[in-house]
């Protein structure tokens, strides 16, 4: 007797009612699980693509430096002295000093016929700094700030490339966000319709429960349990499938690609956050979908 037996009695009832109705509508349950799996796989795949695009761009961005040229009338000593000042500039992560000779060697190394260049000597080049940034989308601001430093004659930056990277990142993020939102709503809709089938079938039972004085929470629970189970079955299955697909693609890319920057994030790194995300979506779809389905029956 007592409170504990009453509680376990109730929980047993909710579980029994919720799970048995999954099997009572085997087909609709199966269909809604499939829809959840499909939605999660699409959501998951897009998010993973977005993650990888981000990762690749990060690698590319770290190569994308700004060149700050030192005034020609500065000696090498004077030019070197500028380094601490440049490191102070906001958004600058690191700076590398390159003398005009080094620059000349690098430059001439790119051409077959160096005869012409040798005539010119390294004098036509200036001492320079390669400047690396934390956030490439702030390149314009950083460029302006660098130009303010006395001794810096000119700053050259590939603004279009930086903007291109930022644009790709934003586009991919926005598309995958919008898609995730749409698919979430689709899953909710399908889930609530599946549970609505149960509520419709049991409308007389619900009416009797209300008539004899069951609380709304008590009436709601079996349907929440049903939704929760469907949601979790869907999300766990989708997770396993997502894992398989990702591994397959990962292997292919490593096999085929000779490109150093095309590096796929290791699944182990994202396994846990992805699992949490999938379970969270399954949980929310189950609970919210069934709450929506039962809402109308609890109005009086």
């Amino acid at each position: 007797m007592g409170i504990t037996t009453m509680k376990s009695n109730k929980i047993g009832y909710f579980l029994h009612e919720g799970i048995s109705s999954i099997f009572n509508h085997g087909f609709m349950s199966f269909a809604s699980v499939c829809i959840i799996i499909a939605c999660l796989l699409i959501m998951g795949s897009f998010s993973l693509v977005a993650l990888n695009v981000n990762n690749i761009i990060e690698v590319l961005e770290s190569d994308n430096q700004v060149i700050a040229y030192v005034s020609e009338d500065y000696t090498e000593e004077e030019a070197r002295a500028l380094q601490p000042q440049l490191e102070q500039v906001a958004n600058v992560s690191s700076v590398v000093f390159v003398t005009r000779d080094e620059a000349f060697d690098e430059f001439s190394g790119q051409y077959e016929d160096t005869g012409l260049l040798e005539d010119l000597g390294s004098d036509f080049l200036r001492d320079r700094y390669e400047i690396y940034m934390d956030d490439i989308s702030l390149m314009q601001e950083t460029k302006t700030a660098l130009e303010q430093v006395t001794g810096i004659a000119e700053v050259s930056a590939h603004l279009e490339i930086a903007q291109g990277f930022t644009a790709i990142r934003n586009t991919v993020s926005i598309i995958s966000l919008i898609l995730a939102a749409i698919l979430f709503v689709v899953s909710l809709f399908i889930m609530s319709n599946t549970i609505k089938l149960t509520t419709f079938e049991r409308r007389e039972e619900i009416a009797i429960m209300k008539m004899v004085g069951a609380t709304s929470a008590f009436i709601r629970w079996p349907f929440i349990v049903e939704g929760l189970f469907l949601g979790l079955i869907g999300s766990l299955t989708a997770y396993v499938m997502q894992w398989g697909v990702y591994r397959l693609i990962e292997d292919r890319v490593v096999e085929v690609s000779g490109l150093a920057f095309l590096e796929v994030i290791d699944f182990n790194v994202i396994a846990v956050p992805l699992l949490i995300a999938f379970i969270a979506v399954g949980f929310c779809v189950g609970v919210i979908g069934s709450s929506v389905a039962i809402k109308n029956y609890l109005k009086v």
């Binding site: 007797m1 009695n9 004899v212 069951a214 009436i219």
Partner: peptide
């Protein structure tokens, strides 16, 4: 059923 849904115990 009428007893169970208002939280009565098995006993």
């Amino acid at each position: 059923f009428a007893m169970r849904v208002v939280g009565a115990s098995k006993k």
